[in-house]
Amino acid sequence: MGRIVKRARRKSPIAFHYCHNGELPYIGQFPFPDIFYRDTIMIQNRYDFKLGICFSLFCLMVLFFLIPDHVGSFTEPAALMPVLTTIFILLLSIILTIQSLNFKMKIRIKSEDSHKTPTPSLLSVMAIMIAYSWFLDYTGFLLTSAIVMFVLFWVFKVKDLKQISIITTVTLGILYVSFEKFLYAPLPVGILIENLLD
């Protein structure tokens, strides 16, 4: 299998090189089994096309809507850098789109992995974190973090309530003591709590 992969690499260095952690592939050796690479090739290739299109659209939006509205006209010195960078990204994404079309996949192995879309639990963690950052303004650090930690543990399927309570109390307790008592740097109390306290 290793040989076929290597041939694919010669045809298109772009599609092959990257697997998502910034590590270069390590063909056929520990710790990655061969199958990992087949998936990577297919996924990266499929993403590349969409990525190229999406980024092109994004760049056009930046160029024609965001920059005129939020920076200034193209001739101003302040707009020069954003305009040049956006045009550069636009060119790159067009190249990426074309490359992904040219790449004829030699290996067609059905990917059984569920890498296509983020899992529901992943999406829920994202949603929890967004909600957390928003609620911090209102309910303060300690209360919000305690609730969020409980919810996160629940999402992560840790069921032992005694353990959860201990971990939460200890973590937040250490943070509270070190910020408020040792560093004299107040943690946010939150608008709602502030009103309640008075």
């Binding site: 090189h17 990257y18 956006t86």
Partner: peptide
Amino acid sequence: TGSGSQVKGLMSTALGVL
């Protein structure tokens, strides 16, 4: 650094600048 593909490496760089 940290990316094998030149096009994508440059894209990441340009995004950072933007």
